[in-house]
Simulated assay, not measured.
Amino acid sequence: MQLTNRQEDLLIAVALIEFSVHYEPAAPDLAEYAWQLAADCLLEYDVEPCEAVDELEIK
């Protein structure tokens, strides 16, 4: 299955959010940077973090 550029970007954003959440206690600065990168990506597509997985539309 070939992903669209939008799906690839959203998938990266989801991975960055997951990284941010799981590594915040160990590396808060890095976690904040990952969250900001994800937010910037999601802003480009007008998607909230809580909507990102649903927006992927991968079946």
Rank of each mutant, 00 (worst) to 15 (best):
M1L: 10
M1P: 09
Q2P: 07
Q2C: 01
L3W: 01
N5S: 05
N5F: 10
N5E: 03
R6P: 00
R6N: 01
R6Q: 10
R6F: 01
Q7D: 03
Q7C: 09
Q7R: 04
D9W: 00
I12N: 15
I12P: 00
I12W: 00
I12T: 12
A13L: 01
A13T: 01
A13F: 06
V14H: 05
V14R: 09
A15E: 05
A15G: 07
L16M: 12
L16V: 00
L16T: 03
L16D: 02
S20D: 03
S20H: 07
V21W: 03
V21Y: 06
H22W: 15
H22F: 05
Y23C: 13
Y23N: 14
E24A: 12
E24C: 03
E24W: 05
P25V: 08
P25E: 08
A26F: 09
A26H: 10
A27L: 05
A27D: 13
A27G: 05
A27E: 09
P28M: 08
D29L: 07
D29A: 08
L30P: 04
L30Q: 13
L30D: 11
L30C: 03
A31R: 11
A31F: 09
A31I: 10
A31H: 04
E32T: 14
E32Q: 14
Y33L: 13
A34W: 04
A34H: 09
A34I: 07
W35D: 12
Q36Y: 11
Q36W: 08
Q36T: 15
Q36E: 09
L37D: 02
L37N: 02
L37I: 01
A39Y: 01
D40S: 08
C41K: 11
L42S: 01
L42E: 04
L43N: 15
E44M: 10
Y45P: 00
D46N: 15
D46V: 09
V47N: 11
E48S: 11
E48F: 07
E48L: 15
P49F: 08
P49Y: 07
P49V: 03
P49H: 10
P49D: 07
C50P: 00
E51G: 00
A52H: 11
V53T: 08
D54R: 14
D54W: 12
D54M: 08
E55V: 05
E55G: 01
E55H: 05
L56R: 01
E57K: 11
E57T: 06
E57Y: 00
I58G: 07
I58V: 14
I58M: 15
K59Y: 07
K59G: 13
